[in-house]
Amino acid sequence: MQITLNINGQDKKMDVEPRTLLAHAIRDAGLTGTHIGCDSSSCGVCTVLLDGNIPVKSCTMFAVSAEGHPITTVEGLAGSNLHPIQQAFHDQHGLQCGYCTPGMMLSSVALLERNPNPSEDEIRFALSGNLCRCTGYQNIVKAVQQAAQAMNQPAGAAADD
């Protein structure tokens, strides 16, 4: 069936089967930053944002159900500059193999929208739907803390380092 998905602000017309998973639809549209890592909705590497700030596991949603809900993927995070969460993952060594990173960053962005000053416990709690096999999470927590700080600074005051 013909559907239109709005991904990172762009309408994309696509022909899908009802059973096409949102993750596959996004990837087939050329946006391969959204990954797939399990069969059981456990790992969260497919996490994208729906309607701006709602993280969902895109392997556990059909593409047809996403019609009418703007989707943000990792490719839509950066503007002319990196998003503070991207900068923070880099600065804090919050990634190694990079496979979980897009989903992990998008879950972090959703958390920071809801809770601009999360404690370490709140960060660990909010990210517990996203698995990382490389980092042991500690530097991811630090990255989210750095991003929180950066995002809470008044616009224009963000330091370059």
């Binding site: 909705s41 996490t47 993280p55 969902v56 909010a126 739907g129």
Partner: peptide, 9 residues
Amino acid sequence: VADPIVRYR
């Protein structure tokens, strides 16, 4: 319930 991302849906 489940995990934090699953709970959104």
